[in-house]
Computed example of a mutant assay.
Amino acid sequence: MTEGKDKFLEEVESYEDWYDTASGRWYGLLNFCKFLTLAAALASVVVSVAMDKEVFGGSGRWILVGIAIITAAANEVLGQLKVREMEDLRERGRIEAARIGIYARQRLAELGGDPAALSKVKDEIRGLLHRLELSQHGGAVLIDSPDKTLP
C-alpha cells in the first residue's frame, strides 16, 4: 500500500481506537457502579443483621450511614452521567467505527494506482466518519436533553 493509503488508514483506525477506548470506559464505569451498588446493598444487609445493640448505638450506625452514602453515590453517578445511555451510544459508535475501518481496509486494498479512484473512496470514507461523528454528537445531546428531543 502507498504511503498516502497508509496514512489515511491510520486516521480511520484512530476513530476505531477512540471509540473502542470510550466504549470500554463507559462499560467499565457502568459495571463498577452496578457492582458497587449491589455490594453496598448486600453489605448493609449483612452488617445490619450481624450488628448487636451496643455496636449499633456507637460506630455501627456510622458504618450503615457510610454504606448508604456509597450506594447513593453509585446510583447518582449512574443517573447523572446517564452511564447506561452513554455506554450504549459509545458501543454503537465502536461498532460503526469498526465497520467503517473494515470497509476502508477492504476498499483501499482493492484500489490499484488510480489516484482518482483513491480520492473518491477516501471522500466516501470521510463522509461515513462525518456521519458517525454527527450521529454520536446528536445522541449525546439527546441523552443530556431534559425533553429528549434534538434542538
Rank of each mutant, 00 (worst) to 15 (best):
G4E: 14
K5L: 03
F8Y: 13
W18I: 02
W18M: 12
D20P: 00
T21F: 12
W26T: 07
Y27R: 14
L30C: 01
N31M: 09
F32K: 13
T37I: 00
A40L: 05
A41C: 04
A43W: 03
S44M: 08
S44R: 07
S44N: 10
V45Y: 10
S48R: 06
A50D: 02
M51L: 12
M51T: 11
K53D: 15
E54P: 00
V55T: 13
V55F: 12
G57C: 00
G57Y: 04
G60Y: 04
R61D: 02
R61M: 07
R61S: 10
R61G: 05
L64Q: 11
V65I: 15
G66D: 09
A68D: 03
A72P: 05
A73W: 02
N75P: 00
E76N: 05
E76I: 12
Q80D: 08
L81R: 07
K82H: 12
K82A: 10
M86E: 03
R90H: 12
G93A: 07
I95M: 08
I95E: 10
A97I: 01
G101Q: 04
I102Y: 11
A104V: 06
R105T: 02
Q106I: 03
Q106L: 11
R107N: 07
L108P: 04
A109V: 01
E110G: 02
G112F: 10
G113Y: 11
D114S: 08
P115K: 06
L118P: 00
L118G: 09
V121G: 06
K122V: 06
K122G: 01
I125T: 06
I125D: 02
I125V: 15
G127A: 14
L129S: 01
L129K: 03
H130V: 00
G138Q: 13
G139V: 08
A140K: 08
A140W: 11
V141C: 11
V141W: 13
V141S: 07
L142W: 06
I143G: 03
S145L: 12
S145R: 14
D147Q: 08
D147F: 10
K148V: 04
K148H: 14
T149R: 15
L150Y: 13
P151K: 09
